[in-house]
């Protein structure tokens, strides 16, 4: 498409969108509006859904981080889907780069500082990542950021082991087991409680590490899964030497 035409179209889009965002999409304070109705029973409530999340998270889920409670408990099914999107992308990427991986790449020997620093730093990076996903129900963070921090550690490993790369098979096994345990935690909800992904563990003491029922378990599974998936993605994008 011609550049001028593209510019005209995008300026038009900009004007329409900003006009609409500024006048038409007025966000309403959730404490003041948005009273909802249970669509099945028809019962009406005089508060909004987010207000209920904010007020009931403590009793419903035992998590002190409301966003975590929404992500893992109230809208937990979305998160299963989200994990699956990442899994699908990692699978697709591995499928596409299958033959590319086996080409020879020029090897750059990593410098000494990088090599020695990684040995010191790597355990701490993984520790921080694990801390973030284990404390997801208490502090900002959770499985996705924690997994991403661990994957950053993997990136350092890739930079150091230029020829070997990561242990792909072990990553793949970890990823599978983490995914399976997530779905199984959900399915056990059908067995021990009534519904998929419903909490069936004691809520524990509020704001303590061992609290919030299945939330920490799910976040640990997600942390392992995201860490190994992102590691696998980087490994595949890098390419390996087959010796």
């Amino acid at each position: 498409m011609k550049k001028a035409l593209a510019a005209v179209i995008s300026i038009a889009i900009f004007i329409v969108l900003s006009y609409f965002f500024l006048t038409g999409s007025a966000p309403i304070d959730y404490l003041k509006g948005g009273n909802y109705t249970d669509p099945i029973t028809g019962e009406q409530y005089n508060h909004s859904v987010p207000q209920q999340y904010v007020e009931d998270t403590k009793n419903d889920t035992g998590a002190s981080n409301v966003v975590t409670a929404i992500v893992v408990e109230y809208r937990g099914f979305d998160t299963l889907g989200e994990v699956t999107v990442l899994f699908t992308a990692a699978t697709g990427l591995a499928l596409l780069l299958d033959e590319l991986k086996r080409r020879t790449l020029p090897v750059v020997d990593p410098n000494f500082i990088l090599k020695s620093a990684v040995k010191v730093v790597l355990p701490f990076i993984i520790l921080v990542g694990a801390y973030i996903f284990i404390h997801g129900h208490l502090t900002p963070g959770g499985g996705f950021p924690g997994g991403a921090v661990i994957a950053a550690g993997f990136l350092l490993m890739i930079l150091v082991h230029t020829t070997r790369g990561l242990p792909e098979r072990k990553l793949s096994i970890t990823e599978s087991l983490a995914g399976i345990s997530y779905v199984l935690i959900g399915l056990l909800g059908l067995v021990f409680a009534n519904e998929f992904l419903q909490n069936y563990l004691p809520l524990g003491n509020f704001t303590m590490l061992f609290s919030a029922g299945i939330i920490p378990l799910i976040y640990i599974a997600i942390g392992f899964k995201v860490g190994s998936e992102l590691g696998g993605i980087m490994h595949n994008l890098k390419g390996v030497h087959e010796e």
Partner: peptide, 16 residues
Amino acid sequence: LTAIVIGVSVMALALA
């Protein structure tokens, strides 16, 4: 949070 993860996944695949 969900939208960001989805964006990252799509971008990784696009790069591949």
